[in-house]
């Protein structure tokens, strides 16, 4: 055969031509738990965006009966100030998601950057960066967040910064670990042999190939961030009243649990559902992005025999 003309040999072996992300998506939604999580998350996002419009009452609208038990008018009852708990839970979704998004965003960017630099450069820089991450990691996350809030003062913004800083080492570690293995891949060496610069190698080749663990970690961290926010608010160093936030509402309901159990139960359930949704989606993503899983599916497609 001649090298200078295209021949019949060049048709791809795998017929279906699908992008990697669509393949990931189809594996993800075929997982029932993950699908359930995705639905819950979808509802949450709707609540966060349109909470005020959907809620039957304002978040801080008062004037109802105090401590009213759940009824048709107030499906989750009312609280100590006569506010509708259902409306507050619905509107509180925004706070929770906002805290999750901002704090995970901070740790995602900072941790990925640190992890990329430490993993790719190696040597003393790696040692210094990762030892400082270890120190940060050694503090219990809530304690660290309290310390940061103690310095900056209690507010939702500071709570988000605190959670973001506290989560950074997790991302840094995950990214560094993945970078260390991807860095040794032959294709990285191949691109280097073409004369590619370090920046190009890191951004175009290493980053996309460590995306999978980062995505999984992001979804799991979202759950933890929401929990941490709830804990901080519960301790009084996070969201300040009267903002509707699930952790804060839980804290308010704690003292009156025998009088009005609904004040604590429903925000608690909301936290539980959200955290679980993020976790099952994270687990589903882990499976869907796992190259082993994918190769099993691919080999099913390509036939057998070695």
């Amino acid at each position: 055969m001649s090298a200078t003309e295209a021949t019949a040999d060049d048709r791809p072996v795998v017929d279906e031509h699908r992008s990697q992300w669509r393949q990931t998506w189809s594996i993800l939604v075929s997982n029932r738990m993950a699908l359930f999580g995705l639905v819950v998350l979808g509802l949450l996002v709707v609540a966060a965006l349109l909470g005020e419009l959907l809620a039957p009452h304002g978040a801080n609208a008062q004037g109802f009966e105090f401590y009213a038990a759940p009824s048709l008018d107030h499906p989750f009852g009312t609280d100590n100030l006569g506010r509708d708990v259902f409306s507050r839970v619905l509107i509180g979704a925004r706070t929770s998601l906002q805290v999750g998004a901002v704090s995970v965003g901070i740790s995602l960017v900072a941790g990925t950057l640190l992890g990329l630099v430490a993993g790719y450069r190696g040597g003393w820089l790696d040692a210094v960066l990762m030892r400082s991450m270890d120190v940060l990691f050694a503090f219990p996350i809530v304690l660290l967040a309290i310390a940061i809030v103690a310095v900056l003062g209690p507010s939702i913004t500071n709570a988000m910064i605190a959670i973001g800083v506290a989560f950074t080492p997790i991302f840094a570690r995950v990214v560094r670990g993945s970078v260390l293995s991807v860095r040794e891949e032959v294709f990285v060496r191949a691109v280097r042999s073409l004369g590619a610069s370090d920046v190009r190698i890191v951004l175009r080749h290493i980053l996309p190939n460590v995306a999978a663990p980062i995505i999984v970690q992001t979804s799991l961290s979202f759950a933890f961030a929401i929990l941490t926010e709830a804990a901080l608010s519960f301790l009084g160093v996070g969201v300040q009243p009267p903002t509707p936030a699930w952790g804060l509402m839980l804290q308010e309901g704690r003292g009156v649990i025998d009088l009005a159990w609904w004040m604590g139960l429903f925000p608690g359930l909301a936290i539980f559902l959200t955290v679980m949704a993020f976790n099952v989606v994270g687990d589903g993503l882990r499976d869907a992005l796992d190259p082993k899983q994918r190769s099993i599916i691919e080999s099913r497609g390509q036939g057998v025999d070695a």
Partner: peptide
């Protein structure tokens, strides 16, 4: 072998 894409007769 049974597979998603049909039976592979190997």
């Amino acid at each position: 072998f049974g597979s998603k894409r049909g039976v592979a007769h190997v």
